Computed example of a mutant assay.
Amino acid sequence: MSEDKKALVMQAICDGFLSIAKDLGERDFSPQSDDQPIGQDKIAVILSMISEDESMRGRFLFEGDAAQIKDLAEGMNGETLSDRAEVFFSVGEFANMVCGKAVTVVNNAYKGTNFRLTPPAIFSGTNMEITTPSVQSTELKYSGPVGLVRIDVGFEGV
């Protein structure tokens, strides 16, 4: 994948994250530049981005403090969520919207790319680490009302 496409994907994901979090989740996030770790109890969502001809493959990882992810999900739903399954469904849909917006931007800018998304996979746990050794990625952290979130986007063979 060209550097131009990677930069466009990252910008579209950042813009999508911030706008959807604000408009739908009613939450403001700000860039976090230090190495402050995300808490031990985490929720993470992973989606794959694959071009139609399968020549380009990438993945989107969105993870955060469980309390921050729950807060975002509650903002999206306009109510307190007591069932973790509802939180998982909401954060999966949030990640789908962010990635869908980014994929649309890239597909419109680079005709013929035809990126598609896989359904989101949601993980939850304590001291959880997710890594994809064969993927070079770019990581961004944001501070929200009650914790941190991390966005990590990478592509194979780049």
Rank of each mutant, 00 (worst) to 15 (best):
P120L: 11
V91N: 06
T113C: 00
V98P: 04
T113L: 02
G100E: 10
I122T: 15
M76G: 05
S82A: 14
C99I: 06
E86L: 15
S82D: 15
A95L: 02
F17S: 08
F62M: 07
R57T: 09
P37Q: 00
S137P: 08
P37G: 01
Q32A: 01
V149P: 04
V135N: 12
T118L: 08
G144N: 04
V91H: 06
L117H: 04
V45F: 08
M49R: 09
F62S: 00
T118R: 08
G100I: 13
Y142C: 00
T104E: 12
E139P: 07
L47P: 02
Y142F: 11
L140I: 15
N107R: 02
V149E: 02
G125I: 11
Q32M: 06
F17K: 07
F29P: 01
E86K: 15
F94L: 11
R116C: 03
I46S: 09
M76P: 00
G92N: 13
V103P: 03
C99G: 11
M76E: 01
P119S: 08
R59K: 14
T113K: 01
M128R: 01
A95F: 05
L47N: 06
N96Y: 09
E79R: 14
D35I: 04
R57E: 10
S55K: 14
F94H: 11
S30D: 05
N127Y: 08
M97K: 08
P133C: 06
Q11I: 07
G75E: 03
Q40Y: 12
I50F: 07
E74K: 03
A44Y: 07
A121Y: 08
T126H: 13
V149N: 00
E54I: 07
N114S: 09
K101L: 12
S33T: 13
F88E: 11
D34A: 06
G147C: 08
Q68I: 01
D71E: 14
G58R: 07
L61F: 05
E54W: 02
D71F: 13
L148M: 06
P31R: 15
M76W: 08
R84P: 14
N107K: 04
C14A: 14
Y110W: 09
V105D: 07
K70W: 03
D23I: 10
S137K: 04
I46D: 03
V106N: 00
E129H: 09
G39L: 11
